[in-house]
Amino acid sequence: MPDEITLSVYRGDKSGGQEVEFKVPMQTGMVVLDALHFIQAHDAPDLAVRWNCKAAHCGSCSAEINGSPKLLCKTRVDDYVGEVIHVRPMHSFPVIKDLVTDVSWNYEKLRQVPAFQPAIKAPFTLQQRDVDRIQEFRNCIECFLCQNICHVLRDHDAKDRYWGPRLMIRIAELEMHPLDTGDRLELLKGAAGVGMCNITKCCTVVCPQGIDITDNGIIPLKERVADVYWDPLGGLVRKLHK
């Protein structure tokens, strides 16, 4: 094992910046966040990096390592033996400083999703099979790596037309709750912009929680929109059924 690794870390703020190289002694099983902590303690005490739990539970330490969106606490340094490790902030959000970005837009949108509207008071009677698929979505740690990789937000900056995979998953968990009475389809088709997604699945690829965002979340939402807006026959059948 090499004694030392080289990290090239983005330093800068909204006015710009560049990567700066640091040497860090290699330790067994080290993750990239450990290396950044070493840099903070020894070379650059003001190196800004967001982190909390260091156990991949909280979703704070999202960044891009050699071009791929990853959690810093879960990415092992020994995955990059013989390479310089380039660490940059998330591309789709404005940089505050160094590796810290302004992700407040996501919280604004989360606030705009109509909340859970249960049909009855708790305690609920629900089978495990009724909640399995929403539990998958509620495993989200809000790291926003899916928002970061989504090309609609990343390359086209279409935040005014599409709310991104995280928000789709939030809406999906409500729409698929057996006891929810809310209707978010107009929102989905309109402001939230599910039609902007072209199901190229990069969100699913980067999700550290392994949520099948596209197949289990977004596509079923697209089909729900199709039920109402592209399928008059189905709509009639549903009306008669009621």
């Binding site: 969106p69 090309h151 599409y162 039609g195 902007m196 997604c197 072209n198 990069c202």
Partner: peptide, 27 residues
């Protein structure tokens, strides 16, 4: 759109599946 994850796109204009012909995917 995109050619692969995290590979930058050159085209500026994008409307996903919200307009013809791509909204026909809903059919």
């Amino acid at each position: 759109d995109p050619v692969s994850c995290a590979v930058p796109e050159s085209r500026k204009y994008y409307f996903g599946e919200t307009r013809f012909p791509f909204n026909w995917a809903n059919l």
